[in-house]
């Protein structure tokens, strides 16, 4: 394992403002190459699913799924497993619970959002409480909790990258097959249902995929800053264009860009990656807001 703050203190690792040399230095170490691999894969998955999450106004569900990863990772560490498995298990379980809730309101068509929000909030509170319990049970864990909540890019193994790639591949494949139906079901559920689109099943499948995307992103940005990759790129892209295909592509590009910038910035400084990814995302979002605002009220 590489100790924290290694990047800042290690010999020869400092910004020279020579782009070629800095870039070569960035990829000099295998852990950093792995960080870029993992970050890219995670950003693609989050950019894709985040776009649909913003479109479907399910950000609260997404946030709760991300928070659900925290007790998962803490619990996994407590029993001596890789935190990655805890992220996936708890995010997946959280998605299953949230997906089970809306079906309880069958027949009230359309009017169940407040109930759904209350249920999601409950799940989130329980998740945070459980996470805190696991952290307390595991004495001397204080250094790791920061990584779980606010992200880390150190010590990502080849095996971990493999898992991230596999899960992201499932997400991309699922969207390639059912993305258009999901778009229809998100924009216009009543008509989609009348056309035979499995609206309810797609909603459940989407939440599960979102859970997995949140679990992936948690491993780079930490549980609390998952939104940096799930919401910000998607919201920025939707701000900039209303063409679905362009908007989805832009969301992925922004997610990958802020992740790369965040990784580079974190490498050359002693501050956490979650902060940098979020800050670059926030900057992009702010610029998009200003740009579309100045482009006139017609579009905005």
């Amino acid at each position: 394992m590489i100790p924290a703050h290694w990047a800042a203190q290690g010999p020869g690792v400092g910004l020279n403002w020579n782009l070629v040399q800095d870039l070569r230095q960035l990829f000099e170490f295998h852990f950093m190459v792995n960080a870029f691999r993992a970050g890219t894969v995670v950003a693609v998955a989050a950019g894709l699913l985040g776009w649909f999450m913003v479109l479907r106004a399910q950000s609260f569900a997404g946030h709760t799924l991300a928070v659900a990863g925290f007790p998962g990772a803490a619990g996994a560490t407590l029993v001596g497993l890789n935190p990655a498995w805890g992220f996936f298990a708890f995010c997946g379980a959280g998605a299953a619970i949230i997906a089970a809730v809306p079906r309880a309101r069958a027949g009230t068509q359309g009017a169940g959002f407040s109930e759904e929000s209350a249920a999601i909030g409950t799940v989130q509170a329980v998740a945070l409480a459980l996470g805190f319990l696991f952290v307390s049970l595991y004495h001397g864990f204080l250094n790791g909790i920061n990584a779980l909540l606010f992200g880390t890019f150190l010590g990502i193994t080849d095996a971990q990258v493999g898992v991230l790639v596999a899960v992201a591949a499932v997400i991309v494949l699922a969207l390639a097959i059912g993305g258009r139906q999901l778009l229809f079901a998100s924009v216009d559920p009543d008509v989609a249902e009348a056309r035979g689109v499995p609206v309810v099943a797609l909603g459940v499948a989407f939440l599960l995929l979102l859970g997995f995307a949140a679990a992936e992103a948690s491993q780079i940005t930490g549980s609390l800053l998952v939104f940096a990759l799930l919401v910000i790129p998607a919201a920025t892209a939707q701000r900039l264009t209303a063409r679905p295909a362009a908007s989805i592509a832009l969301s992925v590009v922004i997610a990958v860009a802020v992740t790369w910038l965040g990784l580079a910035a974190a490498y050359y400084s002693s501050y956490p990656i979650g902060f940098f990814v979020t800050t670059f995302g926030f900057a992009a979002y702010t610029l998009a807001q200003i740009a579309t605002h100045r482009a006139g009220g017609r579009q905005a």
Binding site: R180, Q181, L183, F184, V187, D188, A192, G196
Partner: peptide, 16 residues
């Protein structure tokens, strides 16, 4: 909702 009107119409054609 940041989706164009033409996209909504098009989903009626190929959304399923």
């Amino acid at each position: 909702l940041r989706v164009r009107g033409v996209d909504v119409v098009r989903l009626g054609l190929d959304g399923d």
